[in-house]
């Protein structure tokens, strides 16, 4: 394992290091408000698409069409606490 590690350090690291360093030179100096904004944007983008799904897709298998069974309405209830955490904690 040591020989393999040494081999990778001598061959793989020099190959990848410039790209990795360039990436982190952009990412690492970003200020905390950008971190929060990025995480919140990811949370929002990763969930709000559900609001645009068709009702029959969301309700399929539901025993009735009661309003609370529309899972699209669950998304804001779920998302808001997470957003508050990442905005203010």
């Amino acid at each position: 394992m040591e020989k393999l590690t040494l081999f990778l350090e001598q061959n793989l690291v020099p190959l990848l290091k410039p790209s990795v360093d360039a990436f982190h030179a952009v990412i690492d100096p970003l200020p905390p408000p950008v971190w929060r904004f990025s995480i919140c944007a990811y949370l929002v983008l990763g969930t709000v698409w559900v609001l645009f799904l068709r009702k029959d897709y969301v309700l399929r298998g539901s025993p009735d069409a009661a309003r609370w069974r529309d899972l699209r309405l669950w998304i804001p209830v779920l998302l808001v606490p997470y957003l508050l955490i990442y905005l203010f904690v």
Binding site: I39, L43, L45, G46, T47, V50, L78, Y82, I85, Y86
Partner: peptide
């Protein structure tokens, strides 16, 4: 538990589960 749950579980609920 926080970033590790959302949006992953939402994506799984509406894409992978069906």
């Amino acid at each position: 538990d926080w970033l590790g749950s959302v949006p992953a579980m939402v994506i799984v609920a509406f894409v992978f589960v069906p």
